[in-house]
Structure formats: structure tokens, C-alpha cells
Nucleic acid binder design. Sequence first.
DNA 1: CAGGAAATTGGGAGCGCTCTCAAATCTCAA
DNA 2: TTGAGATTTGAGAGCGCTCCCAATTTCCTG
Lengths: 342, 342
Amino acid sequence: MLNLTLEDIARMAGVSRSTVSRVLNEHPNVRQEVRERVWEVIRRTGYHPNAAARTLASQRSWVIGLVLPRSVSSFFTDPYFPHLTQGIAQACNQHNYTLSLFLVATKEDEEKIFPRVSRKGSLDGILVQSGEIGDQLIDRLVESSVPLVIIGRPFHTEGVSYIDVDNVSAAETAVRHLLELGRRRIGLISGPFNTTVGRDRYDGYLHALASYGIDVDRALVAEADFTEVGGYTAMQRLLPAKPDAVFAASDLMAIGAMRAARDAGLRVPEDIAFVGFDDLPIATMASCPLTTIRQPVAEFGVKAVETLIDVIENGLEPPRQVIMGTELVVRASSGAEQRGIA
Amino acid sequence: MLNLTLEDIARMAGVSRSTVSRVLNEHPNVRQEVRERVWEVIRRTGYHPNAAARTLASQRSWVIGLVLPRSVSSFFTDPYFPHLTQGIAQACNQHNYTLSLFLVATKEDEEKIFPRVSRKGSLDGILVQSGEIGDQLIDRLVESSVPLVIIGRPFHTEGVSYIDVDNVSAAETAVRHLLELGRRRIGLISGPFNTTVGRDRYDGYLHALASYGIDVDRALVAEADFTEVGGYTAMQRLLPAKPDAVFAASDLMAIGAMRAARDAGLRVPEDIAFVGFDDLPIATMASCPLTTIRQPVAEFGVKAVETLIDVIENGLEPPRQVIMGTELVVRASSGAEQRGIA
DNA sequence: CAGGAAATTGGGAGCGCTCTCAAATCTCAA
DNA sequence: TTGAGATTTGAGAGCGCTCCCAATTTCCTG
């Protein structure tokens, strides 16, 4: 039962290797009767074709890699990544691909992982999370001309496929929501400015203020790192500037920030309103349910896989650039209901 | 640069295919001068050996699979799994293995994944998270006689390799800590009773009570599912029985439970003390820093990988059964300091 | 019932590597 | 200088599959 080969099955079914291969790969042009006889033998023996041999002969591994670069240190702190991974894993399974996970923690990791990832014959394609703007990893992957889809817009977009949400307008919507509720001293807890997502959400914040003719007050902007602790300390830096609302570029930071505001004796949302970004389950479970931008994280992962499969099957050109929609989810933390009642 | 083979490198270096193979695999018995010449060509051309061909010829894929069964629905809610995965990924990288991730969400997933996982030639070994006691997945994997290490003690332990912490004594330590602080109506928010980890921590709770001659009050025991929401609702069920302390079988549940206690107007730890389990970063960030059992989650992952590699290299027998230590970490939630001061 | 087209089947040549074995080369003591 | 033994190298036979091509069989149509 252990080391059966195509040849063995062929002998047992009284046909040739080629015919068994045809049956296995669902090629047409095999007589129904023969097809059934072969399947019967396969089932009875519990035969599974050898993946390596298949890959070698067909130049197709049915494996895709998910690469999370060094800068994504928050893999295990921010629920965003598990959710994304979940969506990706599910889609891989759906499409009969196997998912390999490459967590790049250090520079040495990167050197070790790189050959494994870019080498032909082990991976059909790569999904890589966009990271810091200076990071060479993505450029190196692009150069290796392996089918590649970047999760989150990279800094250089010419000729590369990526998938993202429209962070600028999503952030603008979030901040506008606060403006519409009458808040005027709106703080921003941004993501890192050396990431496109950090910059984009900052730009959205600026646009919203500009549309209301409000000048940006630098004391109302604090850069953080997408973590809860980062949100907490950023909020402490913002407090002296007396914001009456804060847009945080992730739910986790919003939760940290709310905690900091509470610890400073402020009431949410009466004294200070909050809007987050992501709409992960924690958003509803926060001490004050969070108004936030919902992005379809799991579907995002699914779409990334499907885009990558498209690239694998139909070539790198033209670059696929997919932008997914977001929506504002209003809950208690922005004080929308208070105002409605008042 | 793209489709170089061993043969090409051999020709360019003026040696045979075999010699290049020897150089690549660091076999001895290659003249220093030749070795360097070959490396030089490899470096210059950017050649990487084809993984599939290597696997086919050597019957070794250098890939291990991490299988998370259906019952582990909390992959994306409980930070435990990302931490574990992180440890595993890091160790894989260290040992030059590639990690493939198999998230089993549905029965169909399981059917799709199973052949990919048990088939020879794609995976050198498997790490599988222990799940519900009735789950057939592990039994099927054991039968397929692929090198296997189970994360968390499975229900049937004969002949299988696994790695776990001593949940019984860890839980006992946690509950004893509360008893030593003078608490007597100690509630338990347990994990699911259809998991070994759920049962073990329950047993530890019983042992601790027994050692103080306290009879267990069924109204003080609530089964939950390791989620924060589960902890919250379990706490609500416990409240009528007026516990003065609660041991929750995970930090996440402890946090949910504390929130429920607060929402019911109780003060932590004055009115009710809490002890959790895991000591993940969220434990320190809780509204009241959590006394908890620290288990070495990331090292756990590392150890699992190392144990699996041992099994891969030295055979399935004898079964490796590794138990790792835990320690009690005292913070504010158990009220130890109050008592110290009083 | 012939004859050609279509459907079905088998054989062979790889895919790119590892590994055994024998040949070639080198080393050094006598 | 020679030859036994050690070291280094190359040739060849797979690993188990896919896929092309040619051979065989089946199916129609007139």
C-alpha cells in the first residue's frame, strides 16, 4: 500500500501507465469502462500519485507561498493577519492549492527563505504582504519574475499585480463621519509613515479636513505601529492637544487609544469620539463598541488567491490591480446615536 | 538564468553533474579547488536546484505540514494560535524546512486536504493540533504512518508522539494560588470538555479543591470555548453562585469573564479575583493585569518542530512524548498584592 | 463491406536531481 | 620507481510522473 506507482496501478488494471495518468488527470478519450476499472483499483489500493514526480514532469507544483516580511512584526498581535491567513488558506483549499507560510523575522530568515521562494519548481506563485517602503524584499521577488500578487499597494506599482482597499477614501469617510457629527478637533493615530497604508490613511484624513476647510494641527497627529500599546501611547501624546475625536488607523490602536482616554478621565463618546479601521470581531467587543471602517479581510485573502491563480494560469501581463470596497460601520464610539437623540 | 540545470552548471565548471551535486550537498571528497570553481559558477549564474527533482530523487521534501483541525475554530480569535504558528514557522526556517499550513474548516476541507497530507512525496512530516476527542482526523493521520507529532495530548496516546504542558498540575497551581489567598468560592470557566486540555485543566481544579477539602459546587463550573465572548457568557452563568474567585482556562476567557464581572458591578480583584491561562501579551494589557499560568507558546512550537525532525530522521519508534513546564505569573487580578499589604 | 476519420491506447523520451559503483588519479612507503 | 590504498571524479540507472506521437481499435458513411 505504501509505495505504489502509476505503473503498479496500470498493471493491476490491465492498462498502460499513460491510461492511468489520463484517468487521474481527467483527460477525455478514455473508455468509460476502462476509466471505472482504473478508479476501482485506485480506490481499492488507496493509491495517491507522488507529488514531487508530478511537479517535476508537469512543471506545476500546486503550491503557493504566503510571505510576510520582517516589518510585519505584528503577525501575532494584530488579529488582522490571522483573519487574512484564514481567508487565504480557505481559498487555496478551494482551488486545490497547498499554502506554504514564510514568516520573515530577521535578515537571515530572508536570505534563507529567498531561494526557496524564488526557485522554480517549488512554488507556482507568491502572495506577499506589502511592508515598509524601503524593504527590498518585494523588489527582489518582482525581479525573480515568479507569479506574484502583493497584498496592499506597494510603493512601486508599475508592472506589478497587487490587491488593496482604497485606503484614502475609506479614511476620508471615517473622518468625515466625525466632522458630520460636529467634531472639529479630530486627532489621527496613524499607521507607520513608512508604509503605503499608513500614508494613504493619513492622506484620507487630510482630505476630509481640507473639505471642511480645517487646517491640520500637527499636535493632533501621532504615528503609531498598529498595535494596541502603540495606540495607547499615541493617545497619551495626543491628549494635551485636547482632541474631541480620534480616527485610529486600526481597530487595535483605537481600542488602546480609548483605554488611554478613559484612563485620563474622559468619557467615550461624550468627551471624545473614536473611529477605527478594520472591523474585526474585537471592534464589537470593545468596552464601547467601535465605529469603524469595515474591510473585507477574509474575502480580501480569497480575492488575492484568485488573482494569483489568474496570474499563474494566464501570465504576468497585464498586471492585475484590484481595489476592494470598504464601508463605514457606525457603532457607539463615534457618538452618532447621542447626536441623533439630542 | 531561468532554467539552468545541474548539467549546465557542470558544463560551465568543466566537471560532471555528480561533482556539482556533491558540492551542492556539501559532500566531502571534492577537491578544494574544484569546489570553489563550482561555487563560483553557481553564484555567478544564480542557479538554484530544482526542488521537485531533488525531492523525487532523494525521497525527502524538506516540507512539514501544520494541520489545524476543524474544531480549532478559534484560529483567528485566540492569539494562542498565531503565537504557536510563529514559533513553528521560525523553527522550520532555522532547520531549513518549509512550512505548509492546512486549516481544516469543513468536512470537505478535510477530504481535500487528507490526500495531500498523507501522500508520500509532498511532506516529510506533520504537526497536528489536538482537537475534539471524537475527531477522526488524528487517528487517520496516525494510520497513514507519516512522521507525526501531535500538539497537545491526544485522547489515545499509545504509540503516538505528542508534546504538551502538564495542564493538570498547572491548573492545580492556579487554583491553589487562589486558595492560598483565602478565596473559597472558586469558580471555573473551563475549556470544552470534549478536549483533553479542557478536561485536564478541570481535573487540576478538582485536585486543588480536594487538597483543601472543598467539595466542588457544580454551579461554580461553566464550560466555555476558549473565546472572549464564551468567557463573558460563562461568567454570567457563574455570577448567581457568588464566586469570590474564578480560574479561567485561557487568558481570553479570563478577560471576557472580568468584563462580565465588572458589568455586574463587581470590583476586580477586591470582590472577585481572576486567574487565567497562557500568559499571552493580552494578559498584561487587560484592564486589570492578569495573574495567569505562563506556558511557553513559541518555544512550544519550536520544540514541536524539533521533535518532529527527530521523528523524521530517526523513525517513529519509540514515540516521543514531551511535557513542557509552566509557571504561575502573579499580577493584580488575583489580589495577591492587596493581601500582602493587608 | 470497404475505407477513412475519430476515438482510444501504449511506448518512449524526458523533467532535474541523487546515489551507487567503477574508473581515474593521487599519495606515499618500500 | 612501483604498487597498494586512499581520494576524487564520471557514467549510468533510476525516482514516478506527464505528454507527444504513433499504433491500434472503433465508428460511420456511402
